[in-house]
Every structure is written in C-alpha cells, then in structure tokens.
Write a protein that binds this DNA or RNA. Structure first.
Length: 291
DNA sequence: AGCCAGGCTGACG
DNA sequence: CGTCAGCATGGC
C-alpha cells in the first residue's frame, strides 16, 4: 500500500478488498453520496471538516482534494491497514455465512468521528437510512461550518458546542422528532467534558455500559458507536434486520432469546462487528432485489 | 392508507 | 428477568 502525491490528489495503491461505493452507502455512515465531477465519478464526503472526492481505479484509491497532511487521516478512516482478505476468507469458509458473498464483497468498516457517530446513531433509532441521512444533512446545514468544494458548498458535521447550543425547537425543525431531546442531552454532556475517545481504551462491555448511561442510547446504538467510531471490531449492533438474518442463518428461522443470539455472536470472534456488516448488507440487498 | 424503519424508555407482571 | 405500548416523522 504505497502512496503517490500529486498536486491536488493522493493515490493510494495496492488496496485489496475495498468496494468504495458499497462501503460508503451500506448504512454505516450517512454523509457520502455519488458525485460526478465531469471527469471522474466517485463518492463525495466530508470528514472532520475535510472534503474529498474519492474514487477507485483497479486496486488504487484516489482522493481528490486531499492534502498531503491528511493522508493518514483517510487511511485510518477507510480502515486501509487492516487485512480484510483473511477476514473475508474466513467468513467464506463458514457454511452459514458464505451466502453473504459475493454480495458483500469489499465492504470495509470505517472509523468515523466518535461525536458524529454518537449523534448520527441516536438519530438512527426507529428510523430508516434515507430519513436519517436527511436529518443529519439538515443538522449540518443548520450549524456546520460551510466549505467550498467541487463547485458547491458542503457543510462539516457540527462541532460539539454548535449542537449543544441549539434549542429543542431547532432540532425538531429539522425533523428529529422525539430524538431531539436525546441529541441535545448527549451534546451537552460531551460539551461539559465527557470524553468519548476514552471508550476506545475500555473493554467492550465496559464501554457499552458507559454509553448506556446516555439518555436515548440502548444496546444497538451503543454498539454502532463502538463499532463505527471507536475501534471495537467485536461490537455487534442488533437491529431488526440483523435480528431476522441471524435467526435465519444460525437458528433455522426459529425465534431465540437475545441471550442465545449474543452467544452465537461470541463465537464469531474478535471481528464479529465486521462480519455483522457483511450480514447486514447481504440481508438488505436480498430484500431489495426481492427474495 | 397503513406499515415500517440500523430502538429506547418506562410501566407492568 | 421478559413483554409491551408509545413515540415523531416520512418513505414506500
């Protein structure tokens, strides 16, 4: 995985197992969208206030608009240093999980900003991906820092202070509904000094217990934050899709208790969270195509 | 027109 | 411990 620097872009070569579009649109992050610059077609995103147009060319990832100083940030974000080849191969050898491929081939689990993940997944509860994306986007337009990129204005995910100083009506105005209070509570708590990053140092169960003390955060949202932003590759978010899929794949379609389900998850090992993304994508994809 | 969505809370048994 | 209504909103 070597890097080539050009004037306004960086080329990262020799990347295996990376389907950029799938990874950006599979529901783990809510701010990526397809974009056509006229010259290249790729994914447009903004992370930690840095905008980028990312696109693939054979085994290379090209980041247009990326400065030299930010390459490490993106390598970390896209989880490019992890060996997904061996993880995928192991999953393919599992009789119950192999059905996820090649549908889910190339999905990588991103390392998002923890505060953004915290707020985004609070919004995600009892909600659908399209509407979640809309609410997050309106939140960014409401109080995020504007950035000019590729001829348009993008908005960074708001700072902790920016969200903490919103009113309940501001949040209801962008469609957050009953989650408005949860968002505000979380932002105020972080603004008052709660250290989210510290959760990456704790064990999974300790970190879960911490997040469960937030108003509006339960087991599912907690695991999303831990998996998608804090490096807990064995956090395993169970939503309605995963619940159905796990029962179909592991329990012959029978209804089992949450405890039994988590026992099966344990056996998937330290990368169960990554496997969860394969299952999630496969399940939703097969529903979308009908069957 | 209803049902559902990357669920959680509080009440109740 | 498990179950369950209620919750705001809009996509389908």
């Amino acid at each position: 995985m070597d890097r080539v620097f050009e004037q306004d872009r960086v080329i990262i070569r020799d990347i295996e197992c990376f389907d950029l579009e799938k990874s950006c649109l599979c529901g783990q992050a809510f701010r990526w969208r397809a974009f056509d610059s006229g010259q290249v077609h790729g994914m447009l995103g903004i992370v930690k206030g840095r905008a980028v147009l990312a696109y693939s060319d054979s085994n290379s990832l090209i980041l247009q608009g990326c400065s030299k100083d930010d390459v490490d940030l993106w390598v970390r974000y896209f989880d490019l240093e992890r060996d997904y080849l061996s993880i995928q191969n192991e999953v393919k050898c599992d009789d119950r999980l192999c059905v996820c491929f090649p549908v889910a081939e190339g999905i990588r689990v991103f390392n998002q900003d923890p505060f953004e993940a915290l707020i985004s997944f609070i919004i995600s509860q009892n909600n659908n991906i399209k509407r979640i994306s809309g609410i997050v986007e309106r939140l960014c337009r409401l109080c995020g820092v504007p950035i000019s990129f590729m001829g348009e204005t993008l908005y960074a995910f708001p700072t902790v202070q920016a969200i903490a100083s919103l009113s309940l009506d501001d949040l209801k105005g962008i469609g957050a509904g009953y989650r408005a209070q949860f968002i505000l509570d979380a932002a105020k708590r972080v603004c008052d000094g709660y250290d989210i990053d510290r959760l990456s140092q704790l064990s999974l169960s300790e970190a879960r217990a911490e997040l469960l003390t937030f108003n509006g955060i339960g087991p599912k949202v907690a695991d999303c934050v831990l998996l998608f932003s804090l490096g807990h590759t064995n956090a395993f978010p169970v939503d309605v899709w995963i619940d159905r899929a796990m029962k179909a794949l592991f329990f012959e379609g029978e209804n089992v208790s949450r405890k039994e389900l988590y026992a099966a998850v344990e056996k998937l090992g330290k990368y169960s969270g990554l496997i969860q993304q394969y299952i999630f994508f496969y399940t939703r994809e097969s529903v979308r195509k009908g069957s």
